[in-house]
Structure formats: structure tokens, C-alpha cells
């Protein structure tokens, strides 16, 4: 029985390696360029909002940063609703996933789609199907960072 398993494992391994060798590699360089340009552009828009908030509304660094996040989240939610964010994401890859706008997209997309299952367990619950883990790990890490600071850093 064991020897059969070993033999089958070998066949599987050979097959998997061959299957992987057939599959074309994603065009990493081209994808990276697109991610760089789109991601960079989103951040530049963020910088613009940030500067406007500081100059025209006299906001401090934290406030300007918050209003930037809120504005970008709003824009991304709107674009997702209009069906445009997915079109950007198809080309930009990480360029539109990694910025805060991608977080917003990941909230709207599942919630919108599950509307037909109701407003509580459809929209309400699915808002966090992808963004929930981000909050769980982000907030938990911040608590640990805070506690370490409290106990070990003077």
C-alpha cells in the first residue's frame, strides 16, 4: 500500500510539474508596469487631495490623511457601483488592489452582488467578506504594537 502511494505521488509530481510547465507565465513585467502606473496615479491623486486639504482648509497632517482616505474610498465605491472599477482592475492588477481604493472595492463588490439575498445577511454581512479579515488582522496587530509599546518601550 505504501509503495503504491509512493509511486502515485511520483506520478502526481511529474504530472504537476509538466502541467505547470505548459501554463504560460503571467506577463510579470507588463503587469508590474501597469500596477506601478495605476497605483502611482491613485497615490498622486491622494497627494493632491491631501495638499488641498492642508492648504485650503488648514488641516493638520492626520486630518488631511483621513479626508484623503474618505475621498478615495468614496470615489472607489462609486466606480465599483458603476461597474468601472473591475475594468480598471483587470488591467492594473495590484495597482488597484493595494491602494485604499481596493479596500473600498472589496467592500462594495460582494455586498452589491448579495443584495438579492436580503439587506441584513446579504448586503450587511457580505460587506466584510473580504474586508473583514483586513480589519481583524490590522486592528489586532495595532493592539499588539500598542501593548508592546506599553510594556517594553519607555
Amino acid at each position: 500500500m505504501d509503495s503504491l502511494d509512493v509511486k502515485q505521488k511520483k506520478i502526481n509530481k511529474e504530472y504537476q510539474d509538466y502541467a505547470n510547465s505548459l501554463s504560460p507565465k503571467s506577463k510579470v513585467f507588463k503587469n508590474c508596469m501597469m500596477a506601478f502606473i495605476v497605483g502611482g496615479l491613485i497615490c498622486t491623486i491622494g497627494q493632491l487631495i491631501n495638499n488641498l486639504a492642508k492648504i485650503y482648509y488648514g488641516m493638520n497632517k492626520e486630518e488631511a490623511s483621513t479626508i484623503t482616505s474618505i475621498t478615495l474610498i468614496f470615489i472607489a465605491a462609486l466606480l465599483t457601483g458603476l461597474g468601472l472599477y473591475e475594468k480598471i482592475g483587470k488591467r492594473a492588477g495590484a495597482g488597484s488592489i493595494v491602494p485604499i481604493t481596493g479596500f473600498s472595492n472589496s467592500i462594495v463588490a460582494p455586498a452589491m452582488e448579495h443584495k438579492r439575498e436580503g439587506y441584513v445577511l446579504g448586503v450587511g454581512a457580505k460587506l466584510f467578506s473580504i474586508a473583514g479579515p483586513v480589519l481583524v488582522y490590522g486592528i489586532s496587530t495595532s493592539v499588539i504594537v500598542g501593548l508592546i509599546n506599553y510594556f517594553f518601550v519607555k
Binding site: S26, N31, T80, G83, Y85, E86, K87, I88, G89, K90, A92, G93, S96, I97, G102, N105, S106, V108, A109, P110, M112, E113, I130
Partner: peptide, 8 residues
């Protein structure tokens, strides 16, 4: 994924 998720 949901259809409107911007993934490749």
C-alpha cells in the same frame, strides 16, 4: 470572486 471585484 464577486463580479465587480477588480482582480486579474
Amino acid at each position: 470572486y464577486p463580479l465587480e471585484m477588480g482582480v486579474q
